[in-house]
Amino acid sequence: MTTPAFTAIDHAMMARALRLAERGAYTTRPNPMVGCVVAHGDDVVGEGFHVRRGGPHAEVVALAAAGDRARGATAYVTLEPCAHTGSTPPCVDALLAAGVSRVVAAMRDPFPQVDGRGFERLAAAGVDVASGLLEAQARQLNRGFLSRVERGRPWVRVKLAMSLDGRTAAADGDSKWISGEASRADVHRWRARAGAILTASGTVLADDPALTVRFDDDTLFVPPLRVVLDAGLATTHRGRVREGDAPTLYLHAPDARPPRDLDIARRAVAVQDGRLDLHAVMATLGELQINEVHVEAGASLCGGLLKAGLVDEIVLYVAPVLLGEEARPLFDGLDLHTMGERIGLETLETRQVGADLRLILRPRASGTA
Rank of each mutant, 00 (worst) to 15 (best):
M1S: 09
I9F: 00
H11T: 15
A12E: 12
L18S: 08
L18F: 13
R23Q: 14
A25H: 12
Y26K: 11
Y26M: 13
V34G: 06
V34F: 06
C36T: 15
D42C: 03
V51W: 04
G54C: 02
A65W: 01
D68A: 15
G72H: 09
T78V: 11
L79A: 05
G86N: 08
T88Y: 00
L95M: 13
A97L: 09
R117K: 15
A124Y: 05
A130V: 08
E135D: 11
Q137R: 10
Q137N: 02
R139P: 06
Q140S: 11
L141I: 11
N142R: 00
R143K: 14
F145T: 00
S147T: 02
V149A: 03
R151S: 08
R153N: 07
V156R: 10
M162I: 07
S163G: 07
D172V: 13
D172G: 12
G173L: 15
S175I: 07
K176I: 14
S179Y: 05
E181R: 14
S183K: 02
R191G: 04
R191F: 06
R193T: 08
A194C: 09
V204Q: 07
D207N: 11
P209K: 13
A210F: 05
R226D: 04
R238Q: 14
R238L: 15
G239R: 02
G239H: 02
E243G: 00
D245N: 08
L249D: 11
L251V: 04
R257M: 09
R260V: 10
D263S: 13
I264T: 08
A265S: 13
R266T: 13
Q272A: 12
D273F: 12
L276W: 04
H279S: 14
M282S: 03
M282L: 15
E287F: 00
L288V: 01
L288N: 01
V293G: 08
V295T: 09
V295Y: 04
V295G: 09
G298F: 06
G304L: 06
A308C: 02
G309I: 06
L310G: 04
D312I: 05
E313R: 07
L316K: 11
L323M: 15
L330S: 01
D335A: 15
M339A: 13
I343A: 12
L345M: 15
T350R: 12
Q352M: 07
